[in-house]
């Protein structure tokens, strides 16, 4: 007993070191891919509030750009609206369309974003209070941004496409062939597109949009544009590099997708797997 006490006394420094490191590694292991705890992440209200204030100052530097983008989006939406009206005027399906609105959009502001890591995150100013839940899709006028992961009272953490564990199901806008988009790390403008079989013709400049196969994103939200395509002799899949449409360096406003059918679709798919 005496010698044990002596041992502890002699190596107390090392023991404290060991204990603290073990705690650190335990925290790391449980939170490795996505921040799980609301309190210990930027979904924490105090932390997010601070980032929000910083962001308010930050925003002034890109006001002009932001304005121009909103203006452009406005025009695009106006045009779309006019087109729809024309289309609907002599259509009997008008009531049908409005009764089947499957999802709604919720605006949110980005208060913090990292772009220089392998596991990047961004924080938005909507949380449980605004009925945001884990797994909701997030996009902006440029394209897909990411998926909500940790939800706090007023803020949530979003896992963007530029996170090495993130996978987005996509398809070619022109012919509807499905693939998967994943980020390789390092370069925040480019992603890899996999699972596109070799018999499909791929051209530089083809647009990739969300597939709608998963309930997170409805179909046809743009994600990326094909930039490079190599097809090795004998390979059965294209090796495609695409450039992301979303610019994470200038991300201020996003939309959260509230898909009313998400829970039902997820439950059905889960049941089928089990």
């Amino acid at each position: 007993m005496n010698s044990l006490l002596k041992f502890i006394q002699q190596y107390s420094n090392f023991l404290v070191f060991l204990i603290l490191e073990v705690v650190a590694f335990m925290l790391l292991a449980t939170n490795r891919e996505y921040p799980k705890s609301v309190f210990l992440s930027t979904a924490n209200r105090a932390v997010a509030k601070h980032y929000e204030r910083v962001n308010e100052v930050d925003q002034y530097f890109s006001l002009r750009e932001e304005n121009a983008r909103l203006y452009e989006e406005n025009i695009r939406l106006q045009n779309e609206l006019i087109a729809w009206r024309n289309h609907m005027e002599d259509s009997v399906e008008q009531t049908y369309l409005y009764a089947h609105l499957d999802y709604q959009l919720m605006p949110a502001k980005v208060v913090q974003v990292t772009t220089n890591r392998l596991h990047n995150t961004l924080t938005i100013n909507k949380g449980l209070r605004d009925s945001v839940y884990r797994g909701m899709g997030v996009f902006n006028d440029e394209g897909v941004v990411g998926i909500v992961s940790t939800v706090g009272q007023r803020f949530s953490v979003v896992i963007p496409i530029i996170h090495t564990k993130s996978r987005i199901s996509c398809m070619f806008a022109k012919n509807g062939y499905y693939g998967t988009i994943e980020w390789q790390g390092q370069d925040i403008r480019h992603v890899k597109v996999s699972d596109i079989p070799n018999h499909i013709a791929v051209n530089i400049g083809d647009t990739l949009v969300t597939s709608g196969l998963t309930p997170v994103f409805p179909a046809n939200i743009p994600v990326a544009v094909v930039e490079k395509d190599t097809l090795m002799a004998g390979a059965s899949y294209h090796q495609i590099t695409a450039s992301l449409l979303t610019d994470y360096k200038h991300l201020h406003y996003v939309y959260i997708i509230d898909n009313h059918a998400q829970v039902e679709q997820e439950n059905l798919q889960r049941e089928e797997r089990n």
Binding site: F17, L20, E21, V23, A24, F25, M26, L27, L28, A29, T30, N31, P35, S37, L40, S41, T42, N44, V47, T114, R117, H119, T121, T123, V157
Partner: peptide, 22 residues
């Protein structure tokens, strides 16, 4: 440990900065 924890919360990297600072 405390400094690392503060950094980790601010950066969403729980554990990383703690381990390094300790």
């Amino acid at each position: 440990f405390a400094l690392g924890l503060v950094m980790d919360i601010l950066c969403n990297t729980l554990g990383v900065h703690i381990a390094a600072c300790v």
